[in-house]
Amino acid sequence: MADAIIQVDHVSFSYEEDAATAVRDVSLTVPRGEFHAILGQNGSGKSTLAKLINGLYLPTEGKVTVCGMDTQGEKDTWEIRRRAGMVFQNPDNQLVATVVEDDVAFGLENIGVPSQDMPARIEKALRDVGMEAFAGRAPHTLSGGQKQRVAIAGVLAMEPDAIIFDESTAMLDPRGRREVMDAVQRLNREQGITVLWITHFMEEAVAADRVHVMHDGQIVMSGTPREVFSDAERLAAYRLDVPPMARIAQALRQKGMPIADGVLTVSDMAKEVARLCK
């Protein structure tokens, strides 16, 4: 598997003080350029998994490799974190500097990029997330969505292969969520950046290449969004929701209307209804 950016192989991990958020025997492969979503309720272990991939936590059993490097090996820690960057949940608690461009520079400074190379990389990273006009602003004057995009730029400037998003939209309003989602999907599509998107919003997982459902520290479902969301009952058992259109489709099927399987989005549903009613 030369082209697997992230490979998690039978990994277990537990905190001494908090067994609830442990990860148990998880295996997962994210090939280069793909967009994978991990769904799960709070305490399902999804955030712990993210931190295992970035080398912030080390597995107690099993092996995590990022671009072929084992997270266990200390010499590669910084290279792993550079190549698989991470964006966290709270937009206020991950920006370090009092000026946007200095914050984007933070990672570059840490990995020792020569000063003269920094401005170009910072400018490009900010442009890629549509924040170039805010280079001189103070973070506390930005909206939540803008702060998250600055955080993404900070990771992008380090030229990563993959970015792990740990519930990066959970604290944003719909507009902020859309801004961040659009930016990430564009990076995935246009620059081939591998994305691991951790969330509990179903609708954000609809556009992923693959969806993995975590429950109680384990991956319990894996597949394309259509495969995963067609099983509403199982999702409900994991205390997860299904997208509204999948729910309506289910109700219609129960009443005898022959809606096809795999209806997830509004346009899926509209097409299906038009087909049946015309």
């Binding site: 931190k51 970035n54 912030l56 910084w78 974190r81 550079r82 960057g85 991470m86 966290f88 709270n90 608690n93 991950q94 370090v96 461009e101 200095d102 520079a105 933070f106 990672g107 570059l108 400074e109 840490n110 990995i111 020792g112 990029v113 020569p114 000063s115 003269q116 920094m118 401005p119 910072i122 955080a151 900070g154 990771v155 380090m158």
Partner: peptide, 23 residues
């Protein structure tokens, strides 16, 4: 706590070997 985690994830490991944006 959050910030420390985020800084570590962005490869922060003290002042050693650090370059600076502003010359």
């Amino acid at each position: 706590g959050d910030l420390a985690m985020a800084m570590e994830a962005r490869c922060y490991h003290g002042g050693e070997g650090r370059t600076r944006l502003r010359v």
